[in-house]
Each structure stands twice: as C-alpha cells, then as structure tokens.
C-alpha cells in the first residue's frame, strides 16, 4: 500500500492538522512503509471471526439520570485560552 503526497495531504486535512509542504513527501514514504508492514494481516483468514473492540466482558453500567456535578464555572473556564463574562470565547463559527 503506497500513499502519495496528495493522499497524505487529504488525510492531514481530515485530521485538521497542518503538515508543512516539505514534510508531505517524507511522511508519505514513512506512512507507506508502515502500511506495507501492516499489510501482512491480509494473509490471515478472519472470516467468521468476531472483531474485538474491548477485552472487558462487562456491559456498560448505567447510573441514575441525576445531576452529579455542577456549579463549577470558574474551574471549567480556568484553562480557557480566552474567556469573557463566564463564556469561552472562540473564533467565529457562524457566518
């Protein structure tokens, strides 16, 4: 499996992650060699095998639908890069 520069650029956009132009080519090489190595999984016949998402057998526990937390506006905003009047301030998201 070989990835070209354009594909890497496309994946980087899907991940919303800027990759410098001069890094695309080397990255395409590295990712291709990783994917080539991963390709050996295709040797295995996995028909009828259940995919394993987690090793824990437990079903997700449920709790009562009650408020367990709150009244912590200051703490919530403490790490905000920018905030005003108790709100996070973010770049404009609606045109």
């Amino acid at each position: 499996m070989s990835l070209d520069k354009d594909t890497v650029n496309k994946i980087a956009y899907l991940a919303r992650m800027r990759v410098a132009d001069d890094k695309l080519e080397p990255l395409a090489g590295e990712l291709s060699s990783i994917l080539d190595w991963i390709e050996q999984l295709q040797e295995l016949d996995t028909d009828g095998v259940e995919p394993m998402a987690s090793v824990s057998d437990v079903t997700l526990p449920q709790r009562k639908d009650v408020v367990t937390d709150g009244n912590c506006q200051t703490a919530v905003l403490k790490n905000a890069p920018d905030s005003e009047d108790g709100f996070f301030t973010v770049p404009k998201v609606v045109e």
Binding site: I38, L41, Q42, L44, T46, V49, E50, P51, M52, A53, V55
Partner: peptide, 14 residues
C-alpha cells in the same frame, strides 16, 4: 480492510 481486520486478528491473539 484495516480497522475491522485488525480487531478480528486481535480476537485471534486473545
């Protein structure tokens, strides 16, 4: 091809 395949192999390893 990748993710589900890997999860299936994970079952075999387990």
């Amino acid at each position: 091809a990748y993710y589900i395949k890997a999860q299936k192999v994970r079952t075999l390893i387990s």
